[in-house]
């Protein structure tokens, strides 16, 4: 059953139709949020769930002019941005303390198998992606991890092809610099 039909059934009040729609998209929504939040599973779970609820509440606004998936991405991006904004400066201060403490932890010795290096690399990459400006992080995540074309990203973010291209290019430039030890 396609998205359009499911959405119609939900609007008609059919029991369980919304759950079906969630099942269809939850893994991708979660994966996207996981990337967006810099690899925080708890946050990703909560964000993606809230995204579905927001989509449900605003389903009347969804007319099928684009894929449900793109619409959901857009909702998630807006939710995530709202959340970042809502975080007070205090959170940033606390975050700095935590990073400070974490950075002073003793590094564990490599077992030689490269597993540690891979884990460390994943952490570093997530951290650097998280540190990107919002728009760059969003474009990069949608393209690299969700596989959206520049054109589709433009639809999700309401911006032009050239904006997408520029932000992706800026994101890559930053990441190359930030990850130069690994690239």
């Amino acid at each position: 059953m396609g998205d359009a039909e499911l959405v119609l059934r939900i609007k008609q009040g059919e029991q369980g139709a919304f759950e079906d729609l969630v099942r269809l998209h939850m893994k991708e929504a979660f994966a996207f949020c996981f990337r967006l939040t810099g690899g925080r599973a708890d946050e990703a779970e909560e964000l993606s769930q809230d995204g579905f609820v927001a989509a449900y509440r605003n389903l009347a606004a969804f007319r099928g002019e684009c894929a449900f998936r793109s619409w959901l991405f857009r909702i998630l991006i807006n939710l995530h941005r709202d959340r970042l904004r809502a975080r007070s400066r205090w959170d940033k201060v606390l975050g700095a303390f935590r990073r400070d403490v974490e950075s002073r932890r003793e590094p564990v010795a490599d077992d030689g198998g490269g597993a540690l290096r891979a884990r460390e690399l994943a952490d570093v990459v997530r951290e650097k992606v998280r540190a990107l400006p919002d728009r760059q992080r969003e474009v990069l995540t949608l393209h690299v991890y969700q596989g959206l074309s520049y054109h589709d990203i433009g639809l999700v973010l309401s911006c032009s092809y050239d904006d997408v291209k520029m932000n992706l290019s800026l994101a890559r430039k930053r990441l190359r610099e930030a990850l130069k030890e690994y690239v």
């Binding site: 893994k27 690899g39 599973a41 997530r126 992606v129 990069l140």
Partner: peptide, 10 residues
């Protein structure tokens, strides 16, 4: 390649 090598979760 480096970016794509970072695993997701689920």
């Amino acid at each position: 390649q480096v970016l794509k090598s970072v695993p997701g979760d689920g």
